[in-house]
C-alpha cells in the first residue's frame, strides 16, 4: 500500500470511529431532551401537587399526580437497597478474606451468573412464592423482587470497593492484633468508605430504575397514597410502563412527567457519586 492510500484509509477509519461514537452518545442527549420537553409541561402545570395528588382516571381532564408511585418507589427501593447492601457487604467480605478458596470462586460465579437471569423471571418467582402466599401483590413482595434483582449490582460494586483496599493495610492491621471484625470496620469500610458509599448509591439507582421485578409483585395502587407494607403499592417506573402501554393520552402525559421525575431521582445520586469519586481522587 502506498503512503497516500494508507493516509486516506487512516482518515476514513478515524472519521467512522468519531461518527459512530457521536452517534452512540446522541441517544442520551435526545432522550434527555425529549423527556424534558414532554415532562416539563405536566410538572409545571401541576407544580408540587404532581407529587402529592392521586393519578387521574382515563376520562378525567386533570392529569392528577403520582404520589402513590413516588412513595412506593422510595419505600421499596430503600428496603431493597438496604438488604442488598447488607448481604453484599457480607458476601464480598467473605470473598475478599478467603480470596483463593474454592467457595469464594463459587460465590463469585453464582453472583455473576445472576446477571443471566431475566428480571421478569424474578418477578414470576416472587409472585408464585410470596404474592400467592400473602394473598395479594404488596410492597414487601416488590421489595424482595427488587432485592433479588439488584443483588448482583450491590455485590459487584462492594466487592470492587473492598478489593481497592491494598493488601498491606489489611496485613498491617492484622499484625497489630486487630480482630477481623475491626479489620472490617476500620480497614475495609474505613479506607474504602467513598467507594462503598458510591456502591450503595449505584445499588439505589438500579433499584429505583427497575421495572420488570415489580410487574407482578407490586400491584397498582392508584386510589390512595399508601396502605401499608403488606398491601398493594405503586412505583414510578411501573406507572410509566403501564401508562405508556395504555391508549389514553392524559396517561401518556402523566408518564412523561413521571419520567422526568424519575430521571431527576436517578441523576441526583449520579452527581453525588461524581462528587465522592472526585474527592477521593484528590
Amino acid at each position: 500500500m502506498g503512503r497516500s492510500t494508507r493516509k486516506a484509509i487512516n482518515l476514513l477509519v478515524i472519521a467512522v470511529i468519531v461518527a459512530l461514537g457521536v452517534l452512540g452518545l446522541l441517544p442520551l442527549i435526545w432522550l434527555l431532551y425529549s423527556t424534558a420537553v414532554n415532562g416539563l409541561p405536566p410538572l409545571l402545570e401541576k407544580g408540587l401537587s404532581f407529587i402529592t395528588d392521586l393519578p387521574p382516571t382515563p376520562m378525567s381532564t386533570d392529569i392528577g399526580g403520582i404520589a402513590p408511585a413516588l412513595v412506593g418507589t422510595l419505600i421499596s427501593s430503600s428496603i431493597a437497597t438496604l438488604l442488598a447492601v447488607v448481604s453484599a457487604v457480607i458476601s464480598s467480605l467473605f470473598t475478599r478474606e478467603y480470596m483463593y478458596s474454592r467457595i469464594s470462586g463459587f460465590i463469585e460465579a453464582v453472583v455473576r451468573s445472576f446477571n443471566g437471569i431475566p428480571t421478569i423471571i424474578v418477578s414470576m418467582y416472587v409472585y408464585t412464592t410470596v404474592v400467592l402466599w400473602m394473598g395479594e401483590p404488596n410492597v414487601v413482595a416488590a421489595s424482595i423482587a427488587l432485592l433479588i434483582a439488584v443483588l448482583p449490582t450491590a455485590h459487584y460494586y462492594l466487592s470492587s470497593a473492598l478489593r481497592s483496599v491494598e493488601e498491606r493495610y489489611r496485613e498491617a492491621a492484622l499484625s497489630l492484633g486487630f480482630r477481623r471484625i475491626h479489620v472490617l470496620r476500620y480497614v475495609y469500610l474505613g479506607v474504602a468508605r467513598r467507594q462503598v458509599a458510591s456502591g450503595i448509591l449505584m445499588t439505589f439507582i438500579r433499584a429505583v430504575g427497575e421495572t420488570a421485578p415489580l410487574l407482578f409483585t407490586m400491584g397498582f395502587l392508584t386510589n390512595s397514597v399508601f396502605q401499608g407494607l403488606n398491601r398493594p403499592g405503586n412505583a414510578i417506573s411501573l406507572l410509566i410502563f403501564i401508562y405508556a402501554l395504555s391508549p389514553y393520552t392524559n396517561y401518556h402525559t402523566v408518564a412523561w412527567g413521571a419520567a422526568l421525575l424519575l430521571l431527576i431521582l436517578v441523576l441526583i445520586p449520579v452527581l453525588l457519586i461524581e462528587v465522592l469519586v472526585k474527592e477521593a481522587r484528590k
Binding site: L31, T35, G209, I240, F241, H252, W256, L263, V266
Partner: peptide, 18 residues
Amino acid sequence: VMGALPTVIYGLWGGFTL
C-alpha cells in the same frame, strides 16, 4: 450516565419519540 438511566425511560423514548 447513560448506563444509569432506567430502562423504562429508554422504552418510553423509544416507543414514543424514536
